[in-house]
């Protein structure tokens, strides 16, 4: 992440880590979450759900910071994040 001014406590404060979960069959493929995840974690799967929509999936190489914005922007209650138990 690029900082405009480096926070003084950058080394001492661990960034929150999250795990993003998708309720696949609720998704209607609007791509709001994909477009507005500030960490670029999400992309659309090539698979379809039961309603015929592509749904988002998390790129394991990207770091989810558990900001929960995807959860707030999803009109379908189809995606949310939880704190990653590994951190």
């Amino acid at each position: 992440m690029k900082y405009w001014r480096k926070p003084l406590d950058l080394e001492t404060t661990p960034l929150a880590r999250g795990r993003v979960l998708v309720v696949k069959d609720r998704c209607k493929g609007c791509e709001f979450c994909v477009n507005y995840c500030a960490r670029g974690v999400l992309g659309m799967s090539k698979h379809f759900n039961r309603k015929g929509y592509h749904y988002p999936e998390a790129d394991p190489a990207r770091i989810c910071v558990n900001c929960r914005f995807c959860e707030a922007i999803c009109p379908e209650f189809a995606i949310f994040s939880v704190e990653d138990p590994q951190t």
Binding site: K28, C30, E31, F32, A72, I73, C74, P75
Partner: peptide
Amino acid sequence: CSGCGIGIVFN
């Protein structure tokens, strides 16, 4: 519909 803003407001 897919991408309707009502769901965001409801959330």
